[in-house]
Design a protein around this nucleic acid. Structure first.
Lengths: 121, 121
DNA sequence: GTAAAACTTGCCATTGATGTCAGATTCAAG
DNA sequence: CTTGAATCTGACATCAATGGCAAGTTTTAC
């Protein structure tokens, strides 16, 4: 499929898909004319990339992480080296804190929303 | 206390504290000379603000939300109006998605970290 | 073959919280 | 009073992903 379809199917803009390629997060075959040609696996990969972006990882970390994930792209499964494991552990802790934070904030929102729905108090 | 101490006690930069004021997230008394003078409650308030920022809310939403939170600043407890409740509900759903996302990403990290710690497989 | 749609690269803009610097003023202590 | 530390305001920079535009090329449909 080409970039337009991939964008439609993933909900990620074409602009971002090109950016992902430049950041070495994904590759694409090229037609003789130079247009990108994606395989089916690209859909999952893009979604995974989006999730990791949403989790606050930067392009560089994601690029290092992807080859170590199973179901990544059918490529050889790499094992994370010491430095990467160390980095990912830091990220993991950050994510933990973020989850705790989100849970607290969600509670706050719930309280306010709840209070508004029970005006007679 | 003055801004330096508040910054130290909350881990938030002086720059950000002044920004919070400009965004109407908090107020401060002023000394005759114009220096900010914060009460004890400011510490909690700053921490709360930070949490909400971390949860992805923008200044404007936080500014609307704060007066509706208990233990906010001793001011009168406002009840969220319909528009705000609607906005907060949207935020709540976004937070839910974010949490789900983070849990998935954390799992991914755990798998990769785990795989690296068991090289013989 | 022609026209429209899709795609290409490259560049500049945006966002929103925060960093940083400069010059001026105030505060606290000697 | 003086001096150094702290604070003030205001302006400009940063970051990282994304948006948007322009000019040119490829593809697709007729």
């Amino acid at each position: 499929m080409r970039i337009g379809e991939l964008a439609r199917r993933t909900g990620v803009s074409e602009r971002s898909l090109r950016y992902y390629e430049k950041q070495d997060l994904m590759t694409a075959e090229r037609t003789p004319g130079g247009h990108r040609e994606y395989g089916e696996g690209s859909v999952d990969r893009v979604i995974r990339i989006q999730e990791l972006f949403a989790a606050g990882l930067c392009s560089e970390k994601i690029a290092q992480l992807l080859p170590c994930m199973r179901d990544s792209d059918g490529g050889p499964l790499r094992t994370a080296n010491g430095q990467l494991v160390s980095d990912l552990t830091v990220e993991r802790e950050r994510i933990d804190r973020m989850i705790a934070d989100l849970l607290r904030s969600r509670e706050v929102l719930d309280e306010v929303i709840e209070a508004a729905s029970v005006p007679a108090e």
